[in-house]
Amino acid sequence: STVKVRLGHLEVTLHNVSEEDVRELRELWKNGADEEDLRRWLEEWKK
């Protein structure tokens, strides 16, 4: 499914993403990950 995730002022649209992935991303964000960390996660996730 396609999910729009809003993290601060960063809005990311993920395609074919699982609930688990979204949860993981939100956890990262809650734990103080900055945009760099999130971008890195997204790069990994896209592979």
Rank of each mutant, 00 (worst) to 15 (best):
S1T: 14
S1K: 13
S1Y: 10
T2C: 07
T2L: 08
T2N: 07
T2H: 09
T2P: 05
T2Q: 07
V3P: 01
V3E: 02
V3M: 05
V3S: 02
K4H: 10
V5S: 00
R6D: 03
R6P: 02
R6L: 13
R6W: 06
R6E: 04
L7P: 00
L7T: 03
L7G: 01
G8A: 05
G8D: 04
G8F: 01
G8W: 01
G8E: 03
H9K: 13
H9A: 13
H9W: 10
L10N: 09
L10C: 11
L10T: 13
L10R: 08
L10Q: 11
E11Q: 08
E11S: 11
E11V: 10
E11T: 11
E11A: 06
V12L: 11
V12K: 02
V12Y: 09
V12C: 10
T13H: 10
T13W: 09
T13F: 09
T13G: 01
T13Q: 05
L14V: 05
L14P: 00
H15P: 03
H15L: 08
H15S: 07
H15A: 06
H15C: 09
N16P: 03
N16E: 05
N16F: 07
N16Q: 06
V17Y: 03
V17E: 01
V17R: 01
V17T: 02
S18D: 06
S18A: 11
S18T: 12
S18N: 09
E19A: 13
E19Y: 07
E19P: 11
E20W: 03
D21P: 01
D21Q: 11
D21G: 11
D21N: 08
V22N: 03
V22H: 07
V22W: 11
V22D: 02
V22I: 15
R23W: 10
R23M: 12
L25S: 00
L25H: 00
L25F: 05
L25P: 00
R26C: 10
R26A: 13
E27C: 08
L28S: 02
L28F: 05
W29M: 15
W29Y: 15
N31Q: 12
N31A: 09
N31E: 13
N31T: 10
N31K: 09
N31G: 10
G32S: 05
G32C: 05
G32N: 08
G32V: 03
A33Q: 04
D34T: 14
D34V: 10
D34W: 05
E35I: 11
E36C: 09
E36V: 11
E36N: 13
E36K: 12
D37L: 12
D37W: 05
D37N: 07
L38T: 02
L38H: 00
R39I: 13
R39Y: 11
R39N: 08
R40I: 09
W41Y: 02
W41F: 04
W41N: 00
L42Y: 14
L42H: 02
L42E: 01
L42P: 00
L42D: 00
E43W: 03
E43G: 03
E43R: 03
E43M: 05
E43Q: 07
E44Q: 12
E44P: 00
E44N: 15
E44A: 13
W45N: 06
W45I: 09
W45L: 10
W45K: 12
W45P: 02
K46V: 14
K46T: 13
K47C: 07
